[in-house]
Design a protein around this nucleic acid. Structure first.
Lengths: 341, 341
DNA sequence: TTGTACGCGTTATCAA
DNA sequence: TTGATAACGCGTACAA
């Protein structure tokens, strides 16, 4: 077993408290004579002492660790934002423990319990659950908590992209290009972001088929494409509520005849290397850096003062289109609309 | 504060041990009369009791938690493999704590310390450090440990793609297409996978410029492309040691004249939607599912018997090319070579 | 069937 | 400048 304070105390003919004071390093260490201090330090390194953080945290009620529960770590969006949050937190002396709820309510509950019971100083959550009540039963009041990407009404500390604005700039861009009829492929209806995005599409354009809902994976995009294929010729655009769905669609487009002009693909988040794709694409780009930094900022203020009053933050998105889109964007039926270029 | 066993004992006129026995649930619970059992349970839910896992783990020396430290969670490869490992472990009753060393030796050390001192039952590591010695000083002997993606000589429990084979099938495919001269863009030289891949490229083909090393990000790919541009016309292929670098290269290709025939891009890992890209691409695809499952299997056997003797596992990769590549693959100078299709 | 008492490894309080 | 000693919250051998 790993040596403990007792071992070092015995080895060095002192007491555990002395050893603790020396090894904890703080201001207390200076109150110990240099002689014993050196003796203790020497013994510690010689025996390979490693403090038991479980015991320390049990005593101090601090862990210097933040929990982050995301809904799908396989999605590069969350991977990227996770890496930014980690870097930002480490500057403030916090470590990050990342958990993946995999868009599964049971797993979310499990990790919520695990992470809170295991001791963390703060929590960042991309929630699956939708109501403040359920949240309150899962996480102890008093624990600094910031919601990320999916706000919940009534919870003050939250950071997310402005869904209405993000969808609006996307629709504006499409409308300017003359789009009137679209097909919509969306993620799970019970996820607020997906649902809301789909609603806005449906509100702004005429649908050639009912909205297709499914897990936010490539496979759903492909399946939806196959299913909607007969009606797709009427649509000027295919609207996807996230990048995975869109990649499935784009994959499928590759399988069919590219000579007939392909529909525009409208999508949230980035499509890698889209400038080279022979399909017109327009994205609503979230400001990931801003999301990460604001989230950490909110959490840090909460960490300082758990009673701090915060307000939900909305961060605007920017539309971005590829070359193929810019070529066709002088299409018929321009619509007068204020675009937030 | 959250209620403890003492609170419930007081509330229910029993002792902590009784409460503990009931709430721990195991075989002990049946040795308690149904009457008090119900009374205790009722009080527990009424007071909203949540066991303190720090204290429990301190006592039992078990956490049912596995640590996973990856080198770059922003890379979809690690995000995906992380999600697979998480799912697989949760079937065996373990939770996963994911940490991001961000390809930074200090952070790796920090998390290694944190995660081991904080108590985990096992560890999966994508190591940055290269020598068994350094590893041994960081992680306590006796802790079940499996290396992922980057083997270290002398460490038995490790799972990785067979780098030699993966690079070989890639080179074979290129050679068959008549490639003789290439440019190589590689990740950090101190990372074994990147270094080894670059070496094999250099060994099989003639280089039009020295190998370009840099952080494994898109930006490096772009910079390398710019820098090598003058010499690129002589190269029939650009070889990248990971997908991020390749995406940077592909982005850059989009900026130049596409009418002159573009070079082949050879790369490890997947390039999304590559069938639609107007550039010939050939990838060496790692079997991520297999990697994840084997890693978990190794860890589970180690968890059962920490003294179990394991052997490093190598998993073969498969070459995959896109449409644009298949069109040009009847190029001159075919080379007789056994391809592992 | 239930309660008492101790230990897990650490920090904090109080004397000396 | 140091050392006993009591928590932190939990599980469990031992006793009743």
């Amino acid at each position: 077993m790993s040596p403990t304070l007792v071992d070092i105390a015995r080895e060095t003919k002192t007491s555990v408290s002395t050893v603790s004071r020396v090894l904890s390093g703080g201001a207390m260490a200076n109150r110990i004579s240099k002689a014993t201090r050196d003796r203790v330090k020497e013994a510690a390194t010689r025996l390979g002492y490693r403090p038991n953080l479980l015991a320390r945290s049990l005593r101090t009620r601090k862990t210097h660790t933040i929990g982050l529960i995301v809904s799908d770590i396989a999605n590069p969006f969350y991977g990227y934002i996770g890496s930014l949050i980690e870097r930002s937190l480490s500057k403030s002396g916090y470590s990050l423990m990342l958990c993946n709820s995999a868009e599964d309510a049971n797993r979310e509950a499990d990790y919520l319990r695990l992470v809170t019971q295991r001791g963390i100083d703060g929590l960042i959550l991309v929630p699956l659950l939708k109501h403040k009540k359920n949240l309150q039963t899962m996480v102890p009041s008093g624990l600094p908590l910031v919601l990320l990407d999916r706000p919940i009404t009534g919870v003050d500390a939250s950071v997310a992209t402005d869904q209405e604005q993000a969808a609006t700039v996307l629709c504006d861009t499409l409308a300017k290009a003359g789009v009137r009829k679209v097909a919509v492929i969306a993620g799970p209806e019970y996820v607020s972001t997906h649902r809301r995005r789909a609603e806005i599409f449906a509100q702004r354009f005429e649908l050639v088929a009912p909205v297709h809902h499914g897990p936010a994976h490539k496979e759903t995009g492909r399946a939806a494409f196959r299913e909607m294929l007969p009606r797709l010729s009427e649509a000027q655009a295919i609207c996807c509520t996230n990048n995975f769905l869109a990649q499935g669609v784009i994959d499928s487009v590759a399988q069919i005849d590219l000579k007939s002009k392909p529909p525009i693909v409208a999508v949230f988040d980035e499509i890698p290397m889209m400038d080279l794709l022979p399909i017109p694409i327009v994205c609503s780009i979230q400001d990931v850096t801003q999301l990460a930094e604001t989230t950490v900022a909110q959490l840090l203020t909460l960490l300082e003062d758990p009673a701090a009053k915060l307000e939900p933050v909305m961060i605007p998105a920017k539309p971005l289109s590829n070359r193929a889109f810019q070529v066709i964007s002088f299409a018929p039926q321009p619509v007068a609309e204020a675009a937030t270029a």
